[in-house]
Design a protein around this nucleic acid. Sequence first.
DNA 1: CATAGATCCTGTATGC
DNA 2: TGCATACAGGATCTAT
Length: 265
Amino acid sequence: MITELNPLLTYPRLRLRTPTFGVQFKVATGLTIRAINRRGKFLWFTFDSDVALVSHLGMSGQYKIQDIGAADEKHLRVRYTLKSGRGRGAESELRFVDQRTFGWSAISELHDGVPDLVRTIALDIFDPNFDLEATVKKITKKNSEIKRVILDQSVMSGVGNIYADESLWLAKIHPRTPAQSLTPKKIKKLLDSIQDVMSQALVEGGTSFDALYIRVNGESGYFDRALQAYGRENEPCSRCKTPIARIAFAGRSSHFCPHCQPVRI
DNA sequence: CATAGATCCTGTATGC
DNA sequence: TGCATACAGGATCTAT
């Protein structure tokens, strides 16, 4: 049970997302957490209430359970006091820590079990209700390049820049290929690759491309050792030895093998 | 409506 | 050595 919430009001990004931040969070005070849900990179806590506590980790956000009175993390953003159902006092703290401050939290109304803030986010590929055929159809209708499309969280959620590059490499598709030029079969291959890449990344504990991106226990994820394209500019492709190329694209870096992933329009 | 670019931020790496 | 600049990332906002 959350018995007390002490949001740090000096965090402008949280205020940006929720102008009435302090007032909003009092809504959740004293509520019992019933479930923690996820869709793509969004997560939310549900209670016996018609609102949810929604959060996004951004790039560097973490939720940590700490003992009461443990030293504050340098980038502590929100502190929640937790109490078990039958306990008398506060037993621990739930803390939202975020260095890059792209993460956020907010109270959002639930409709049909989905918070308003998550309504525009498509299901992710691991969702039991993920509709493969519908997603393929959606992708073929996009008048944009394939990498932009798979990063579009309203088409399918959960894929970020690193796993987009890795999946495109695995499926042998150039990131700038027009989505409309891909056959349904090829798109299915790409979705399969996304599932493979992300499953493996989960096993390895994610990607720690520098010391800032670590797991809550302080350890690095090991998936960076399995990366085939991302961050490997000028290094040989493991399939054909052609140097991996990097292009600036959609405000991001895209890494790909010019030989295995030819441009075809 | 659909799409593309700018934008928020901070720690790290690079260049002069 | 110190300083300035570039860069990384996700999703929203704004412009077209």
